[in-house]
């Protein structure tokens, strides 16, 4: 026990020294939004709007800190003790993991907000080089020999899991589709992948900046963002005939907000996402808003046939167990 005390002692001393931080807005409330990669710009914008809204509503100042990273990595950090008041991640499974492994929020968290707790949606599209030199129009073109596909590692990237399931769903629902055909299809697809970055952002960099690959499987919003950043004269967005309805979820982390006394502001932070303002900002950053009236603030979101995870994989828990767990379908693709 002496040892433990010694460790606590030195830890406390370290803490005491290092907690003297620059005075970053001591007054008012502080909260932390732990989010995934593709929402950096969205939440930077939204946080400003929300701070104004909160000030008008309650007269209080609120400082929102933002942490971005791969969805799985972020969930891991929250499980290990990153003090997130709200999590806004790439897929429901990651928040399920927080609920299951750390019990920081109830298992039925998805029912607590409208639309299964996904205030905005997106889908997986193809980003190709200008002029579409390889003539990529739909999913079958992506698995042709000689086409290089860029996508991230589904094991570590939420976006890549959506991309994987989009391909799976397409093959499953295609005429004569079956689980075996779908497995064959994704196996062919990943044989065409030369680089598996650990996050969706890394994949975009590989495709855009390093000029590797013919087609990038991208979040719709990331594709538009990249088009904006790197010039529409270099890339094109191609919509496949069908794709997946990606539903990035948001949730309140009960244990944290209750301890820090931030429940009210955190709850309002999430609710505000569903208002006209929140939906407008989401649309502006190329996420598909749930409110039809807000869609005009974004690009023309083409209407393509979208299936859900439930349709093609029986929900996230099942999808994870079947496809992405150790020894799952994704691992089998890479088995020699």
């Amino acid at each position: 026990m002496k040892l433990k005390q010694a460790i606590f002692g030195s830890a406390a001393a370290l803490f005491a020294i290092t907690s003297i931080n620059p005075p970053a807005a001591r007054a008012g409330q502080k909260m932390l939004n732990v989010s995934f990669d593709p929402t950096r710009e969205l939440y930077e914008d939204y946080d400003v709007a929300f701070a104004t809204h909160w000030k008008l509503k309650t007269g209080q100042e609120v400082t929102i800190n933002l942490s971005n990273g791969g969805s799985g990595k972020q969930a891991r950090a929250v499980i290990d003790g990153l003090q997130a008041d709200v999590v806004t991640l790439g897929l429901a499974y990651d928040i399920d993991a927080i609920a299951e492994k750390a019990q920081l929020l109830p298992a039925d968290w998805r029912g607590r907000l409208p639309d299964d707790s996904s205030p905005y949606t997106s889908t997986i599209v193809f980003m190709v080089r200008k002029g579409n030199p390889k003539g990529i129009k739909d999913w079958p073109d992506v698995v042709k020999p000689g086409v290089q596909v860029i996508t991230a590692n589904p094991k570590t990237s939420g976006g890549a899991r959506w991309a994987y399931l989009a391909a799976w769903g397409y093959a499953l629902q295609a005429p004569g589709g079956s689980a075996a055909a779908a497995k064959d299809f994704v196996a062919k697809l990943y044989q065409n992948v030369p680089v598996l970055n650990s996050g969706a952002r890394g994949s975009t960099t590989t495709f855009v900046e390093r000029e590797v690959g013919d087609v990038l499987l991208a979040w719709e919003n990331e594709a538009y963002l990249a088009l904006n950043q790197f010039g529409a004269d270099k890339f094109e967005i191609v919509y496949p005939s069908t794709s997946i309805l990606a539903e990035p979820p948001v949730a309140l982390v009960d244990k944290v907000v209750d301890r820090d006394g931030t429940r009210a502001v955190a709850q309002e932070y999430l609710n505000y996402l569903y208002t006209d303002d929140g939906q407008r900002i989401a649309a502006k950053h190329y996420f598909r808003p749930r409110l039809a009236s807000a869609a005009k603030y974004g690009p023309a979101f083409p209407k393509i046939k979208l299936f859900t995870v439930r349709d093609v994989a029986g929900g996230w828990q099942k999808a994870q167990a079947t496809h992405f767990a150790d020894g799952g379908v994704f691992d089998q693709i890479y088995q020699p």
Binding site: R76, N153, V195, D331, Y334
Partner: peptide, 18 residues
């Protein structure tokens, strides 16, 4: 970062953590 091909051990540890 391709499994079986260009995935080094420290990266695999990181992946397992995630």
């Amino acid at each position: 970062n391709m499994p079986m091909h260009t995935e080094v051990v420290p990266l695999l540890i990181m992946t397992r953590l995630e």
